[in-house]
Structure formats: structure tokens, C-alpha cells
Design a protein around this nucleic acid. Structure first.
Lengths: 232, 232
DNA sequence: CGGACTATTGACCGATATCAAATACCGTGG
DNA sequence: CCACGGTATTTGATATCGGTCAATAGTCCG
């Protein structure tokens, strides 16, 4: 990879505290590459040859079985994916595709495992990352099992709203079909869920959503720190 | 804790490769305790004070929000729980209660983190365990989002059947209410799902289930290695 | 102005939940 | 051993939620 990209990578949480030499040998083996939108990067069932680090763009994690497909999660910069499969030297449980043109760092799995053995600070960062991923999926599962689809949408809107500065309106960061699948419903149902939320001050205009009564929406959504808060 | 229990603990995958001294200091801080059935061991939202290792019995992981409750998973010997919260020094995302009288090892979180820093082999074992947990939840989520409740039941029965020796019949390891919640349905619906499976050779007699036509059940269930196989 | 894609709407259906009641099961105390 | 009370499970009736199919309406490009 180009040496000019190295400082950017080095500053990522995952790499910042590792030793110079371990970082160098990791980077020597890695590739930094830009991919076009809608490209399938990895496929579930394939061996995890690389650890992926997304530095720019957006990636959708999805899964298939019996010709059904669902979105498992969205990865935003800076995020990693298939870390667990890499560490276990196992096959991927999820597929991934770019949503937009995206810049990704690909680190060969064997090198990740070697660096993990060699560098204690990296091992700690890996565990931090992995534990965070784990807790993310647990929250997703609670969201799915404990809430109706309208509640899931309401909470997601509140989260987008927060993330984007709580200005009273928000932009949906991906298309509605993907959002629907992420929330565990069909596009048709998402459309109806938006209508259901109209009395709570939710006004949809294309990819923009205006929230004219956040309190009322929050009363419906009943956000829960142990599901909706990124930090915990 | 009693020194007589130490060899048993030492042989667990999580501890077997760690150094003698790190293991000793971990054990000196730990408690091995037996709890009665239906005792709430941890509550979501509370700080993760201990890493729990189940050596005997059975523990249900569950979660609540807005007076709804769902079973997130079942822990069998030898299994750990709330590892991620311990490593991140965070609050628990799930609650846990014993299903039966259970024997558990409680290791103070701070000691786990210290041992992780100190002992490389333990760090590796921790990561292996954590990655396994992560992949478990991902599989659960695929199961939930990609299958109907009847399919989930069918696959679960096939798994129990395998685990118990594929003899043509199996015992449900916990009561039907819990099974229903684990599978993401109501008890009433579980009962109906069993009826739906009758034409596929599923015969229920209390907690015992006879499978008279495993092939037919498998054709309905369409098990998927990336969801149903423990190993991968 | 097509053409392709995305989103919305309506009609309908099937899956799952809810509520109520009946029944089976189990442990306890007599 | 049996009756009793409590709990778990099953069954039936009904409601709600969410999915499917089909048609329509936008929307974005070329």
C-alpha cells in the first residue's frame, strides 16, 4: 500500500497503541483499496482471508439462507468487519457489500493473528473492538425481540436525529429498502410504519425526515440506554 | 474457594493454557458457589462485577424492556457469561438466572482484566471465547430474521436430537415456556408449531419428543451450517 | 421522452399474538 | 396414597401485525 496513507490508518483506535514494528509489518502485508458501490466484498461461507477496515464510504453486512436475505448491520467509518472470523480462522458468517464507493484496508488474516500474538497493546485493542461488536449484536437482538416494527423505526429515527445534531430533521443514510431490511421488515411495511408515525410529528420527504414533536415520538419509542446507546 | 475444586476449573478451555501464577492469583480472588434454581444472578444495567463460569446446571440469559421480556440464550456447562461487559468494564446488557440448581465460578472483573494483561495465553483464550460468543449471537440473529417460527422450532429440534445422540427421540432441556421465548414466540404459538410439525414425524409427549421421520423434518427445516452448526 | 428503479398505496392473506378457558401435570400436606 | 392448589400447557376464538401481490406514482438518468 501507499506509504502516504499510513498516518491515517495509524491513528485508528485499533492501531494507535501498537508497537511501531508490529504496525509496520502489518501494513506491509495490507492493501488499501477503493471499491465502487454495490460490490460484494465478502460472501458468507468463504474463509476469512482478510480483516477489513472501512475508512471511507459505507458497507452493508447481510446474510442469506434459502433465498431469503436480510441486512445484519451497517458499517460506517471507521469500523471493522469479520474480526471474529479472522481471529478464529473460520469462515465468514455474513456477506458484505459496499453501499457507496468505499475505501477499505485489507489486512491478511494470518498477519492479524500474528500481530495479536506479538503485540500486547494490539491484543487489547482487538479485544476492545470485538467486545464492542458483540455488545452491538446483543443490542440488535434485544431490539428485534422486544419491540414492534413501528417502535424499532421510531427509535432508529431518534438515533439518526441525535447523530446528525438533533436539529429537528434528519437524512436517512441509506435507501429505504435497506433501512427496512435492517429493521427487520419489508419496504411496504416501512412505508406504513412511517405513516403510523405521522401523528407523532414524523414527516417524510424523500430521504429527509422532519421531526416536529420529538418528545411525543420519544414517548412512543421509549428508548432504552441498554439497546439504543452506542456507548454502553 | 476450596482448593479441591481447582483441578476441575484448571482444565476448562479458558484456563488450561494460562501460567500457573496467573491462574493462582485469579483463583485466589474467585468464588465457587452453588445457587438454587430460579435465582437472578445478574441484572441488566448493573456493573459487571464478576465474570461467571458455569460448571454445573443451567443458566438463562434474558432481557427486559418496557415490561416485555425475552430469553436471549441458554448457558450450559462449561460456559461463561457477560465476558464482554467484564472486559469493557461496562454494565451488563443481559440479566441471568439459574434454571436449575447451578454451580458457578465468580471471578472479580478486575482480576480477569489484570490476568488478561499479564498472561498472553489467557488473553488468547479470552479472545477465542469472546469470538465464539459473538458468532453465536450472529447465528441467533440470522435464525430470527431469516426463518419463520416453525422453521426455528424444526431446526432446534434437530439440534437437540443431534446433541442427544440422534436416537430418534429427544428431551427438551428446559420448559416449553422458556423454549418458546428463546425461539422468539409465545408458548401458545410453540404449542401450535408442534402441531404443525406432526405431519413431519414430530410427536410430543411432555418433555420428550419423538422424531419418526428425521429426513422429512430436515427437508422442512433446511438446516444451514452457518446458522445451526456450533463449530463454525 | 422513455426506461429502470424506488417508493407508495390498496387489497388481501397468512403468521403470530392475545385473551379466555379447559386440561394436564406436579409437588405438598394430610 | 390421595386430594388440593398452583403452575404449565393446550385449545379455541379472535385480533393485530406484518407479508405478499399487484398496480401506481415518483424520480433519476440517459
Amino acid at each position: 500500500m501507499r506509504t502516504s496513507d499510513i498516518p491515517e490508518i495509524r491513528s485508528l483506535r485499533l492501531f494507535e497503541s501498537m508497537s511501531e514494528s508490529a504496525f509496520d509489518s502489518l501494513m506491509q502485508a495490507a492493501y488499501l483499496q477503493t471499491f465502487p458501490a454495490q460490490l460484494e466484498l465478502i460472501r458468507e461461507g468463504d474463509p476469512a482471508d482478510f480483516l477489513y477496515v472501512l475508512t471511507d464510504g459505507c458497507v452493508e453486512m447481510f446474510a442469506r439462507t434459502n433465498q431469503r436475505e436480510t441486512t445484519m448491520g451497517m458499517v460506517h467509518p471507521v469500523g471493522t468487519f469479520i474480526l471474529a472470523a479472522v481471529l478464529k480462522d473460520a469462515v465468514n458468517l455474513m456477506s458484505a457489500r459496499t453501499v457507496q464507493k468505499s475505501k477499505l484496508l485489507l489486512i491478511p488474516s494470518a498477519n492479524v493473528r500474528a500481530a495479536f500474538e506479538r503485540d500486547e497493546a494490539f491484543a487489547r485493542a482487538i479485544v476492545e473492538e470485538l467486545a464492542g461488536c458483540y455488545r452491538g449484536v446483543v443490542k440488535d437482538q434485544k431490539n428485534l425481540k422486544l419491540r414492534s416494527s413501528v417502535e424499532r423505526l421510531a427509535n432508529r429515527l431518534l438515533r439518526f436525529h441525535q447523530d446528525q445534531g438533533a436539529s429537528g430533521s434528519l437524512d436517512l443514510p441509506y435507501d429505504k429498502r435497506t433501512l427496512a431490511s435492517l429493521l427487520g421488515m419489508t419496504p411496504e411495511n416501512l412505508s406504513r410504519a412511517f405513516n403510523t408515525l405521522k401523528p407523532y410529528g414524523v414527516e417524510v420527504d424523500g430521504a429527509t425526515v422532519h421531526l416536529s414533536d420529538v418528545d411525543s415520538l420519544a414517548r412512543l419509542a421509549k428508548p432504552d440506554a441498554l439497546i439504543d446507546e452506542l456507548a454502553t
